[in-house]
Amino acid sequence: MVERYLAPTTLDEALKALAAGDATIVAGGTDVMPQSQAGRFKLGRTLVNIRRVAGLQGGAKEGDEIRLGALTTISQLREDAFIAKTLPVLAEAADHFASVQIRNMGTLGGNIGNASPAGDTLVPLLVLDAVVELRSAKGMRRLRLDEFFTGPGKTKRTPDELITNIFVPAPKPGFVARFAKFGTRPALDISAVSVGIAGIVKDGKISNVRVAYGAVAPTPVRGRAAEAALEGKTLDAATLAAAAKAAQGEVKPISDRRATAWYRREMIHNLVKKVLADVAHG
């Protein structure tokens, strides 16, 4: 049962609160609240609301990286002019994310902390080669996002660590990234599958390819086989078909109430084709 509520305004206070142990971090609460109400998530003795911690909002270019604060809301991702210009794929993902009200509350850090295989910012962040910055009272470390998730709701974050920032390399010339989520609604739909693809397109050829899938494994995953099928290739019909086949072959989804495994594989195949067509057209 919750015994203490803290709303730190500085990073140090927040880290101190976490260091004391048995604390639950709340950012937007859009995962914490419904999961705890349904008894699927046990709240710690201390509730640490990090929403007021200064300095963790918004995006900015820092050297050859782009920093995204963990408290950036999904609405900000969707509407922020800087993000729209530098990382439009994140704005695209945010546009398909939940509803206005949830986007106003939910944060990027929360989406990562929640570690859902269907988390909609995770697939684009994977193809953007994102790195997670974690801080605790003891210090700071950085982990590659594709090594961060260990299972549904599970990450390498230790309980005293706070996700403070996400860093992605600043896009190079010719860089293209696209995201597509399967669903019947424009948003407010938990992904049954999603696909992200990025790369540098030059003279019709794609290189530095990154492919990632959502909701086909216990965590969001990179699509190494599809990447291999694409790397250095011309984006013609044959390449698209080969990449889609490779994607379909490499995913191992489960059947659940949202879709059967077979259908998910089919959709991965068709979505990869669709996203690649988008990438080919810039």
Partner: peptide, 12 residues
């Protein structure tokens, strides 16, 4: 900002 009050902690 519009939010879902069912997802918000009252203390917030």
């Amino acid at each position: 900002l519009s939010v879902n009050s069912c997802l918000m902690f009252a203390v917030e």
